Amino acid sequence: MADIDANAGVVGPLRAHHHGISVPDLDAAITWYHMMLGFQLEKRLSIAAIPAEVAFVRRGDFRIEIFEVAGAAPLPEDRRVPNRDLKTHGNKHLCFEVPDVPTAVAALRRAGADIAFELCVEGNPTAFVRDCAGNLIEFLQPFPDTP
């Protein structure tokens, strides 16, 4: 195997910049991500080559790029259910680490979020919610330190 810096890979250092999603209503998605998760609108633009209306929403150093494309196919029902979505290749979900999943889910539920399900993975609380377009978002508590 070639000498590869375990922290850099072959392309050098990486830092998450954004995650892209497609939605049927750009304004509704901007509002949802602001109200539910505290993202702020950073920029709106049109991309004539697609054509699409696009928004970047940002929280801290992380962005979500939201596309509205006229005539796009709706999200299939299986893509809205975490365990069924795994049976289709492709990107699965966006995940955020939060200090306390049950507290975060309770706040999202009070705000009207669509909770897909809550579970524990090896004793670690995890939850999935759907945004206003059905895209899956996971919330994960930091894994406890292992001896």
Rank of each mutant, 00 (worst) to 15 (best):
A113Y: 03
T146F: 12
G60N: 14
A55P: 05
F39R: 03
D5W: 03
V98E: 11
I30P: 00
I66K: 08
V11E: 08
P142D: 12
A113D: 07
Y33F: 13
R130V: 06
A49I: 09
V23R: 01
P102M: 08
F96I: 11
R15D: 01
T146A: 13
A29S: 15
L14E: 05
M35G: 09
H19I: 05
V54E: 07
A106I: 00
M36I: 03
P24T: 05
V101Q: 08
G60H: 13
F139H: 09
R44K: 12
L119I: 03
I66V: 15
E122P: 00
D61C: 03
V11F: 09
I115Q: 04
G12Q: 03
R79I: 01
N7R: 02
T31A: 12
A55F: 05
E65Y: 09
I30E: 01
T31K: 13
F39H: 02
L45S: 04
H19R: 02
E122W: 00
L41G: 00
R80S: 10
I50A: 05
T126N: 05
V129L: 15
G20C: 02
P125V: 01
L94V: 11
D27M: 03
L136I: 10
N7W: 00
F128A: 02
E77N: 07
P51K: 10
N7V: 00
I4K: 05
D100N: 15
K92F: 14
K87G: 11
A6E: 09
R130Q: 09
F62H: 14
V129N: 05
M35F: 06
G112D: 07
F128G: 01
E77F: 10
H17Q: 08
D3K: 14
P13N: 01
N83V: 08
A8I: 01
G123F: 02
S22A: 11
V121S: 04
R58H: 09
A133Q: 05
P99Q: 15
R110S: 13
K43E: 14
V69Q: 11
K87F: 14
Q40W: 03
V101E: 05
G9F: 05
R59N: 14
A70F: 05
F139E: 07
S22N: 02
F128M: 04
L86N: 06
L119M: 12
S22T: 11
V121F: 05
F39W: 04
A107Y: 02
A113L: 09
I30K: 01
I115F: 02
L140A: 13
